[in-house]
């Protein structure tokens, strides 16, 4: 209980990434079609979270690239950030949540399927880096707020309609 006095929640915004060490936790709110990717090292009790909006940095048409926005560059950037803290990639494990389809449309436009596309892209990038997905809560049509505790390696997921669960 002594630890909990100094416990802080690191907040990660949309298209942002950050890392956290125990006893702190890391959190992102209001994930819709976006995907929250948590990478963690169980032994070092360090975790990182990236809030991804788009599947592929090839979609970018901006002059400056915010790497945390895309699945491919976001996961790479998070791995690099964790390496600075002395985490080795082969020790990393992943938990992911999000990728919902908030509105049902019959439109052919790809934007409407962005949730599932984000999830696919995240899985592809994790596989490329040989990072196993330990747990996931993806798809559906509910928004999610997620919080990861590196001490227990549990991901707390809150939705409006289905309450709270841990994976």
């Amino acid at each position: 209980m002594i630890q909990s006095i100094n416990h802080q929640v690191v907040k990660v915004g949309i298209a942002e990434l950050d890392i956290v060490k125990t006893p702190d936790t890391i959190r992102t709110s209001g994930l819709g079609s976006c995907v929250g990717v948590v990478l963690y090292d169980e032994t070092k009790k360090i975790a990182g979270l990236v809030h991804i909006m788009l599947p592929d940095s090839n979609l970018a048409r901006a002059e400056t690239l915010n790497s945390a926005k895309f699945a491919d560059t976001g996961i790479k950037a998070l791995i690099e950030r964790l390496k600075i803290e002395g985490v080795q990639t082969f020790r990393l494990k992943a938990k992911i949540a999000g990728g919902a389809q908030m509105f049902k449309f019959t439109s052919a436009k790809d934007t409407m399927r962005i949730g599932p596309r984000n999830v696919e892209a995240v899985k592809k990038e994790l596989k490329k880096n040989s990072i196993p997905i330990i747990a996931e809560d993806t798809g559906g049509n509910s928004g999610r707020t997620i919080e990861f505790d590196p001490a227990t390696c549990m991901l707390n997921i809150r939705t409006v309609n289905q309450g709270v669960m841990e994976i």
């Binding site: 949309i14 709110s29 209001g30 994930l31 819709g32 079609s33 976006c34 909006m53 788009l54 919902a100 908030m102 509105f103 934007t111 962005i114 509910s142 928004g143 999610r144 707020t145 409006v160 309609n161």
Partner: peptide, 12 residues
């Protein structure tokens, strides 16, 4: 649902 989850669709 959560405002963030809804409005983010418009940001994509």
């Amino acid at each position: 649902d959560m405002f963030g989850a809804i409005i983010s669709i418009g940001l994509i």
